[in-house]
């Protein structure tokens, strides 16, 4: 009985979740390739590289659900890592440096929120400009060179392992996942986000305090992006202004791949995790198969275009059916 319902659930997920199906297909292909894909080392490596993007993606999910869009996360990510490392190199305690980086993320998120929600500007252009601005600051701070971290224990923050098996980075990712999932599913704030994204005017006339709630999603996104940046620079033990060039667009696409819609009102944290996993598995398998870096870039571009087009096409069909 139990078995039956699980099977039914799996079929349901497979038909609804194209992203999940894509992962399964890729995993099966890798099963038949003669590579080291299915080794514990590679799988943990895959998890680690995806985790940073996932931390960013959960914040983006919240923004997208509430009908916004944030492309400044790449800039926030690189800047927060550099801020944390610069402070640590100046003998500021690790905890305070990290908190300062997170505060920076929150402030940037608040500025985004103010401009987008209270001044009613187009979210993606404003945040694109904000991303440029932050990347510029990061380059100015570092002279476009990677900054190594002199703090001895910062590197263990992401690379250390719990019980000698699970990397801390994955634990942090899971904690962020549960927090965002809890916010979206079980709090009135989360439900209001869905309402605002679904129909802004209706939400407004239903007595939801739309402005502060929508602005708050940007602040949360800023904080998660900063956290992702801190974890990334801890993983690499250095901060560089060049990491975040395409991060923002890849993360946003990943979230949409998972099933969160640009139109707002649809989506959840587990879906976003699956969406990002598609990109992670794709990247890792292509590396394992030894595909040329430029061809990888083409394939990634085609995947992004195909998925966004499918997302739009689905909505077009729905519009025409009504």
């Amino acid at each position: 009985m139990n078995n039956f319902s699980i099977g039914k659930k799996l079929i349901n997920i497979a038909t609804k979740q194209k992203a999940f199906l894509a992962i399964v297909v890729m995993l099966v292909i890798m099963l038949f390739s003669k590579t080291n894909f299915y080794t514990a080392y590679n799988l943990f490596d895959l998890m680690k590289s995806v985790s940073v993007l996932m931390i960013l993606a959960f914040g983006v999910t919240l923004v997208l659900v509430a009908g916004g869009c944030d492309l400044s996360i790449g800039g926030i990510m690189v800047l927060s890592g550099i801020v944390a490392i610069k402070l640590m190199n100046a003998d500021v305690p690790m905890l305070i440096s990290i908190l300062a980086a997170l505060l920076m993320g929150a402030v940037v998120g608040a500025i985004n929120g103010y401009l987008v929600v209270y001044q009613r500007t187009e979210p993606f252009i404003i945040t694109l400009g904000m991303g440029m601005l932050l990347t510029g600051i990061a380059q100015q701070l570092t002279d476009a060179h990677p900054v190594p971290c002199k703090h001895p224990t910062f590197v263990t923050l992401a690379n250390g392992k719990l019980f000698d098996t699970i990397p801390n980075l994955v634990i942090v990712m899971l904690v962020v996942f549960f927090i965002i999932h809890y916010i979206l599913r079980y709090t009135s704030f989360g439900r209001n986000c869905y309402a605002i994204g679904g129909d802004y005017e209706v939400a407004k006339y239903s007595g939801i305090n739309v402005l502060p709630i929508k602005a708050a999603t940007f602040v949360v996104c800023g904080i998660t992006a900063a956290l992702g940046g801190v974890m990334l620079s801890s993983m690499l033990n250095s901060g560089s202004s060049t990491y975040g060039d395409t991060t923002a667009l890849v993360v946003n696409c990943g979230v949409v791949v998972g099933g969160t819609s640009f139109a707002g009102g649809i989506g959840s944290a587990p879906q976003s995790a699956i969406g990002l996993l598609v990109f992670g598995v794709l990247q890792n398998s292509m590396n394992m198969l030894g595909i040329d870096a430029y061809v990888q870039q083409i394939l990634q571009g085609i995947v992004i275009v195909a998925i966004i087009c499918l997302d739009c096409y689905g909505r077009k069909r729905k519009r025409e059916a009504v």
Binding site: Q297, Q300, G301, I304, V305, I308, C312
Partner: peptide, 9 residues
Amino acid sequence: FITFGMSTV
């Protein structure tokens, strides 16, 4: 997003 993907291609 579509034009960004095409830019990558």
